[in-house]
């Protein structure tokens, strides 16, 4: 690969606006004059007034800006990479994971383990699945590699625990079956691109 691209540091036509400000003091006399001017002007009280006004509004008008974590939480970006969710198929409610083990393989922290078996219907069944969130670095590789959009990142970002290892099992992460209706597609890592439909090629079928 040629490195030209990286060596060209001319980032294009700039469009900066110069901020107007008064001239900086140059001599000792000028500097002293500025100190005097600022002292007398009472700028300090401008700031104090802002604080006071907010306090009054908060105390008497109930206009408060503090988030009372953990009773309140701010919404996070839908693409934030927090504790994983395992999604289900919308039509059948069956878990999406096919047990391919790609997430287990790609995981850079080696924190995913899964057990699979041959079930009565001759399909691969995922009997257990764990992620050790004590090790997970939330890189998102697992979600990206998953061919079924089965493992995705959810919004639960609290990962503190009393031990270094903190395992979540399949059931912890799987969408509860009664909450299937609320299950949302994840727009982050590994999700289908908005123009995915355009990229589909049909297999030639003569019948």
């Amino acid at each position: 690969m040629s490195l030209n691209k990286f060596k060209d540091r001319n980032v294009g036509v700039q469009n900066y606006t110069l901020i107007e400000h008064e001239a900086f003091p140059q001599t000792g006399g000028e500097k002293f004059a500025r100190v005097l001017k600022r002292t007398i002007k009472g700028e300090l009280f401008v700031g104090l007034w802002v604080t006071m006004r907010t306090m009054i509004l908060a105390l008497f008008n109930g206009e408060i800006h503090t988030v009372k974590y953990p009773f309140e939480k701010l919404p996070i970006s839908p693409r934030y990479r927090a504790i994983h969710d395992m999604l289900r198929l919308l039509e059948s409610g069956h878990y999406r994971c096919i047990g391919c083990g790609l997430c287990e393989k790609i995981c850079i922290a080696d924190c995913i383990k899964m057990d699979t078996k041959y079930d009565e219907n001759q399909r691969k069944e995922v009997t257990e699945y764990t992620i050790n969130f004590g090790r997970c670095i939330f890189c998102g590789y697992c979600a990206e590699v998953c061919p079924e959009l089965a493992i995705v990142h959810g919004g639960r970002y609290e990962t503190a625990s009393q031990q270094r290892a903190s395992f979540s099992i399949f059931d912890d992460m799987l969408t509860p079956i009664d909450a299937l209706k609320e299950q949302k597609e994840y727009p982050g890592f590994g999700a289908v691109s908005p123009n995915a439909d355009d990229n589909i090629k049909k297999t030639p079928l003569a019948y």
Binding site: K105, Y118, E125
Partner: peptide
């Protein structure tokens, strides 16, 4: 052995 483990594991 079927479906119990990926070869690379």
């Amino acid at each position: 052995f079927k479906y119990t483990s990926n070869a690379w594991e």
